[in-house]
Design a protein around this nucleic acid. Sequence first.
DNA 1: TCTGGCACTCAATGGCACGGAGTGCCAGTC
DNA 2: GACTGGCACTCCGTGCCATTGAGTGCCAGA
Lengths: 338, 338
Amino acid sequence: MLDERKLSVLRAIVEDYVSTREPVGSKALAERHALGVSPATIRNDMALLEDEGYITQPHTSAGRVPTDTGYRLFVDRLATIKPLSAAERRAIGTFLEGAIDLDDIVLRTVRLLAQVTGQVAVVQYPSLTRSQVRHVEIVAMSPRRLMVVVISTTGRVEQRILDIAIDLDDETVAELRNRINEAVDGKLLSEMPDAAATVADSMPIEVRPAVAAILATMVESLAGEGEERVVLAGTANLALFGTDFPGSIQPVLEALEEHVVLLRLLGEATAPSQVSVRIGRELPVEGLSTTSLVSSTYGTAGAGHLGVIGPTRMDYPGTIGAVRAVAQYVGRILEESS
Amino acid sequence: MLDERKLSVLRAIVEDYVSTREPVGSKALAERHALGVSPATIRNDMALLEDEGYITQPHTSAGRVPTDTGYRLFVDRLATIKPLSAAERRAIGTFLEGAIDLDDIVLRTVRLLAQVTGQVAVVQYPSLTRSQVRHVEIVAMSPRRLMVVVISTTGRVEQRILDIAIDLDDETVAELRNRINEAVDGKLLSEMPDAAATVADSMPIEVRPAVAAILATMVESLAGEGEERVVLAGTANLALFGTDFPGSIQPVLEALEEHVVLLRLLGEATAPSQVSVRIGRELPVEGLSTTSLVSSTYGTAGAGHLGVIGPTRMDYPGTIGAVRAVAQYVGRILEESS
DNA sequence: TCTGGCACTCAATGGCACGGAGTGCCAGTC
DNA sequence: GACTGGCACTCCGTGCCATTGAGTGCCAGA
């Protein structure tokens, strides 16, 4: 159905439209790209591409503009990812090296990504559920009030304060701490429930209910999605592409404030360490139906997600390359600092 | 210089311009407001107000628009703060009541403020420097690595991990913990350096250097501004007022991403529990020179700041009322939950 | 000190003609 | 059958012009 040349035409349309933002016509195409055929032929191809739904005309007597489906085909079959230049890679490396703690890493990453791509960047904090436990600390603040602190290999620290039903003396707490650490050290957070069960069984019978409660609360509150966080940067870049959004950027900004939604979108991405691209209406969020999301996991075992959101009219090869590169670097940095 | 009527004219201009966004002329003014004089007279007054710099014309043969100075005069002398309706107050109360922890309080507050005012809301986390210490926990993660956790009366929890030069056994750590808690309990964070000094002196001579180092790091890292955080909401509202910003909202969005700058602005506000208004170029930030900031402290002893950022053409009486009300409610909620 | 009247300015609006880019279609050529 | 050149048609964007209307400044008079 779509022979080689028609694909070339589509590719040319996407490339021209992305760089000029103007609907592209047959004549301009024939001039700017060495397609080896006349405008008339290109017109025929374009008519067919339009029938197939890959491009569309804003109005009669205007050039063509890619549709979501057109971009999809472009991304899947026509684009070759643009690797970053050596200088860019070096800049990324040195910029991220300077981070002092996890917060700083995340902050630098998100700003970097926004700056490199010129779009809105989104970085999720490394997920606790997928990272390993490095250390658990249990502190008795008062006899019936404990503070539980969990430190993960990604450097993230989570604490909870919880009240229990019976008094626990310091010794018991100390013992509990040791046992828990023995049991969970190096485990994935998802494996903690099992480990926790073992611990409870090994404690004296009279404290078991309390211990079980502690462990349950701990696992539950830490494993829950409630604490997932995302950080944004570069929302100002949206204003630069203002005209790409029909009407206003208002709904887009609104959608970006819904961090829960962003987390879900990032989480829905495909296989780890693959860059996933979701275009326009493929995103199941009304406000983002005029944007594309280029995202990737980063870190070991997909510890977290990061991505870039911009108008569907975006430089996919470049953005994909940038997202991939940044994800790799962040993964490496996290590895080193753990 | 400015008699009663001229002030009324200015007030009317501000009110009309805020609600219609159109430059207001003498005739319309005479019709809509019962000023008791003819348009011609108003014209004379307007000419004078323009000479004094309170209003300006976008171009000849257009109506007048308030200047920053005009808004300033309006806010200082002409506006009567609009209290919220009973229903609104009730809604605020119940909405904030539902918060489960500090993060939740802050999140709800900022969203509420954005929603009530229809502008961008900014809420700073309760500052540690101005809140009291409720509990300090020191945990030995390994002989030379400690974790210090400070819990404040505002419910904020901060932790640091730090390496020390000599080994400290569990007993010493436990003793240190007790002494520190005795010394700092209920103290303001700003008083911690003194309290810490006492503690160091009372410890055995051989561990003093290490202890001093711990305390220094602790105080320094917690008292520093580094950990101040702000949360934003309602940036999408900016797009609704897009036409109020000459050119683009891009610089505004950019400025809003600079949380450090926002913190500084909030901190510069005036007396505690007073609502401060800063208009246009009064804000020493380029990107915000077309906006106004209405802010207030909240909580006891000005624990934190919150505010609203919008175009200079904003409903000052309403916004001031909303900011004041929300600040009061949040203060109360924090009080209760501590 | 206020008012009515008058001449003037200037943004905004709508109508109109025109050029240009683009399209679809068709007949002709390789 | 695939490609090309030509042609008629559509329609956006632009510039131009006249008109309108809101608003101003100023002046003479009450």
